[in-house]
Nucleic acid binder design. Sequence first.
DNA 1: TGACCGATGAAT
DNA 2: TTCATCGGTCAT
Length: 200
Amino acid sequence: MGKLARDFYLRDTCEVAKELLGKILVHETGRGMLRARIVETEAYRGVIDKASHAFGGKRTKRVEVLYGPGGFAYVYLIYGMYHCMNVVTRDEGVPECVLLRALEPLEGTDIMMECRGTRDIKKLCSGPGKLCMAMGMDMLTNGEDLCGPELYIEDAPALPEERIVSSKRINIDYAGEARDYPWRYMIRDNPFVSVREKKA
DNA sequence: TGACCGATGAAT
DNA sequence: TTCATCGGTCAT
């Protein structure tokens, strides 16, 4: 299947977050081709979302790419040492995005293992900081066009609704009522997700 | 110019 | 549960 086109990203952010599950993130680096299936995402809904970097319409140099059109990469540094990779959604002027939280490595795993310093395939991309390290994404990736030649997402058949689980987002306790919004999506019982869903 | 802090990860 | 570690943000 082909590369996801711009239109895919210019839609409701929760829809995009859900539909990105099962799709394949591809990075063609100088060291080789890296491919991994998206298994966990979170929606960040801009102006109305206290957990979002663009809450209240905040606009700084860091978040500028969020205000551009969907289908671009928003990468930022967190805790002084890790990167987080987001897919910008919606039309120009609407600062929303989807955080990639976990991937299932498919191709280029030797390179990922080297970058991560572990050979445990389940731990290569099981977290937003980890997957950036494994996939070779850093501040240089910020603003990159996902409809371009080096970094893109391959289409894959849509998952049936029953294979998708949603829950509260991770590590946003500061976000008031937004902390409880169920905008985290993952593939049910997938062994590559970052934090296992709690059993009732 | 400087103080504060975080969409994490790894070790304990 | 603790802490490493530093750019972005915002208040001086």
